[in-house]
Design a binder for these strands. Sequence first.
DNA 1: TTCGACACATATTG
DNA 2: CCAATATGTGTCGA
Length: 431
Amino acid sequence: MASLSTTGYGTHRSECQNFPWVQHESFHNLECEGQEVVPRIHAKMEKGFFLSPDRSWTCYRRNYFSVTCSFELTPHIGNGRLCLNGQRVQAMGMKLTAAVDGQTGKGVELIQHTPKRDRGPKNAIPIIKISPTPPNGRPAESTLSPHGVYHVPMSSFHATGVPTGPHLPFQNARDDSQLPMPGQNIQHTFERVQFKSATANNGKRRASQQYFHLMVELWVDVREDETRKPKWVKIACAISDKVVVRGRSPSHYKAENQGGGSSSTGRGGSTGGYGGSSGGYGGMSRGSFSGAGYATGPGNTGGFRASQQYQSATSPEQGYSSSTGSSVAEIVDVKHPIEAEPSHDEDSAMQDFAGYQYIPTTLYDGTSVQGKGESPNSTAGGGQTVDKKVSIWDEYPEALPGTQWSMGNCNRFQGVESSRGYYPAFSTTGF
DNA sequence: TTCGACACATATTG
DNA sequence: CCAATATGTGTCGA
């Protein structure tokens, strides 16, 4: 009876981190001493997104989401000079952007808030200088293999100690009023990001649902040596799966799906958690065995009340504690993505049934199903969208044909996608 | 109907 | 335990 539907603000990282980044496109290849160098982008959704009942990645326009990104060059460049069409690469950086799905490919504005939120300025996302991930570095992600196996990288190099990498003259220059980030960053987390607007027709109408796509772009600065101003050129970008950006209160949506109107707290109410879905990878971790609620760990057994505590008694977990400041690329995060988290997230229960039907009563039962609610044709929305791949469930989306749409910036070849994450593989998708 | 801004509530952190 | 900060979300008004 909706007794304690807990607040569980969804957004557990475990969920978002499975956010699929299908598609990696390169516009230009770099070269070093005549040798071709292919960049590979890594991106990881840190928080903010969740999988809606119909298996569409969703987020609320009003909530923050974070994306960590990094990139590596293949082959790795020791200390050589990189060139882009003959122009010397002075620095490299990344930026997060978004575009509307569809043939139009209109750009969508993303904004970043300061922890002050309204009181502070809302800025567009700038290009943040980031250095390529060294061979033994730790990319933003690539820790989780498609099978849930967890690679333990030898994270033993000095984060700040400039690792071997290409020689980028202006990589440390603060031209763009960039954050005073000292030293080089191997990755950066764009935090407190929000979509400036929501997708049209958020499932509230029969009209087709509009989708957005997040894009992590890799840019290189090819300015003239004397120039003070950087001249950025986008050379590649990683595109995410389509996403729905809801613009209204979570509770508004929740009510429809679970009817669990649990006004736990007097006002804010934060109705049930929308953190459904345990996340891809076959949820081999928590859901598997009991799902219901007792996961290993916290004494919270059975108690869903756990709101959103991350407990994580399992491992050092995500070491990054962003918090203040824009937490400029915390290169030191030693996270153990392993899902061992005791997170008995409310997910196991609700998410599943959510994917299928809602069991007004004991939602705890549905858990056993945990794992996948295939039925590919999930009619994710209006269907007008050009693609209909929805099987991101059991498998890993890495090999998905990828969505199809042509966006203004990145377009064309989209299939290019073979190995996307896991650094040991340098297969650059032929580009 | 959607979006911005304000206000209030809860979570987290120190 | 409390205060300050950070973030989620209800709501109203444009």
